[in-house]
């Protein structure tokens, strides 16, 4: 469903993503980890068609993001780390706008809006202007809008930041349920406990290069560590840092599928 083929992205003379290859099938919950500045958000922005790869190809559901972006974006929903809401719209008006944008017909759109309002428990504030919302309320509204058109790919960047434990639980259940229904989920997060609990496979990126990809068990084997995901992550990124500092040389990028 999501394919990245030897994708490289450069900012001037700085390489943010370096020869990244990924193949994520439908219905998989794929977690994307990496230290700050590793290239996670750049990768996500290329998957949404906001940025173009300097080299390589990104496609969603078979549609190339550069040449056939509008069709590819019809399949996806993107929840950024700092989500956007129109401050002068109510939550319901925003949901209506999203339903119209994705071409949901009127009755179906209305039905879906009622469903997501119930699912994310927005009833108490959905008719208030979003400028009055707390961070948690905004996050729930954005997730409701992201799931409104039943996307086949859901890309989520740091979804748990600022959420209370109850909302985090709600979110985790939801992501798992969506993946089980066949939605492909690409989750970028620093919350390793959430990733450990939810992810089918995990990709670790450092300095723009994929340094590990697979199930938790595969990563443990790859890093020769029996510990938690946190131990595995720290060990792999520290090794990558040491290697980079010692040699200064580039390793061949690791392809994952």
């Amino acid at each position: 469903m999501i394919q990245l083929d030897k994708v490289t992205k450069r900012y001037g003379n700085k390489t943010a993503v370096d020869g990244l290859s990924l193949d994520i099938p439908a219905g998989e919950l794929f977690a994307f980890l990496g230290p700050n500045g590793a290239g996670k958000t750049t990768t996500i922005k290329m998957m949404c068609g906001l940025l173009f790869p300097t080299a390589g190809r990104v496609s969603l559901g078979g549609y190339d993001l550069v040449n056939d972006g509008d069709r590819a974006r019809q399949l996806l929903s993107y929840v950024p780390d700092q989500p956007f809401l129109y401050e002068h719209l109510t939550g319901r008006e925003f949901l209506r706008f999203i339903a119209d944008m994705y071409g949901l017909d009127r009755d179906h759109g209305r039905r879906r809006i009622d469903e997501v309002i119930g699912l994310f428990q927005l009833q108490d504030f959905v008719d208030d202007l979003t400028q009055c919302y707390s961070h948690g309320m905004r996050q729930r509204t954005v997730f409701a809008s992201a799931l409104l058109h039943e996307p086949r790919v859901l890309i989520v960047d740091e979804p748990t930041v600022g959420l209370d434990p109850r909302s985090v639980r709600l979110l985790k259940d939801l992501l798992r349920r969506e993946a089980d229904r066949g939605t492909t989920i690409f989750l970028s997060s620093h919350s390793l406990d959430v990733v450990e609990e939810l992810a089918d496979r995990i990709g670790i990126i450092d300095r723009g290069r994929l340094i590990g990809c697979g199930t938790l068990a595969a990563l443990r084997a790859h890093s020769a560590s029996d510990g938690s995901l946190e131990d595995v992550f720290l060990k792999m990124t520290e090794e990558a840092t040491s290697e980079a500092q010692a040699s200064g040389a580039r390793q061949p990028p690791l392809a994952a599928s």
Binding site: D70, R71, Q74, L75, D100, M101, Y102, G103, L104, D105, H108, H149, E150, R152
Partner: peptide, 13 residues
């Protein structure tokens, strides 16, 4: 894309 979903809005304007 679900059965009730068109590819994008019919009248985006």
């Amino acid at each position: 894309m679900t059965a009730n979903t068109r590819p994008g809005p019919a009248l985006p304007g």
